[in-house]
Amino acid sequence: MAELGPVLEVFLGGLMSGVLYALVALGFVLIFKASGVFNFAQGAMVLFAALSLVRLSEWLPFGVAVLLTIAIMIALAWAVERLVLRPLVGQHGLILFMATIGVTFFLDGFGQTIWGSNVYQLDLGIPASPWFLFENLFPGGILVSPIDVFAAVIAGTLVVALSIFFHSTKIGRALRAVADDHQAAQSVGIPLNQIWLIVWSTAGIVALVAGMAWGTKLGVQFSLSLIALKALPVLILGGLTSIPGAIIGGLIIGAGEKLAEFYIGPLIGGGIEYWFAYVLALAVLLVRPQGLFGEKIIERV
């Protein structure tokens, strides 16, 4: 049995990175929940938001840059709604999915064209040096990155806020109604266009938060766009339609892959961290296709 200290450290590190996956997954869930569209472009939106923020903050005070980036993400949501979703209303989900793949490549390219394609440092003023917790309990203590803690707090706040928004506001109820049945929602007077604008804007802001967290960790660069792929197993595990599911899925995936690497990795030569999550997701798909917290597939018999 390994020392408890390192295990705990690996576990905590896993949970923290899980929160970061969850932040990306959250954006997917929002859009899928409210419009039934699997938005492949979420990763590209993370990149685009982070790039906008980092370049704007070069010549603007940070707070102003954040506000301006939020405005940009809302404008982007508006453009997507106008140019992509509205013409495709009533089309099959797969067609909308393909359209979001198009949006992904456009955003990746366009973002780097206007903002540049170098690796940019994003400094949120959070100390980079790790904290050591419980030094009196374990030799050397447990190493925790302040950035991860910051991300965890932000993610937690977002989840609580979004859950309240979805379940106890009129707009939130309308969003869930649209997710269930576009046409019926339209028939009772819920304006789809406005709803989509709200959802995509919210997803854009969530992307910005994810971009800030990931950008601080890795630097703002093209690879941010690829973290969307890491969010997929989180989605499958947590369920595509559940906001708390995204967070819990993220935690399980994050901790799971780190622990798997720690325990099983050495036995088979290491490197399983990169695919463990997908195997886990596959296993979940087999036994519980809607994910741990996804909406039940209601079938009347």
Binding site: R176, A177, D180, Q183, S187, E295, K296, I298
Partner: peptide
């Protein structure tokens, strides 16, 4: 009121 009820199943 659309044909086939079309209630929001998850609400």
């Amino acid at each position: 009121v659309m044909e086939g009820r079309r209630c929001f199943a998850h609400l």
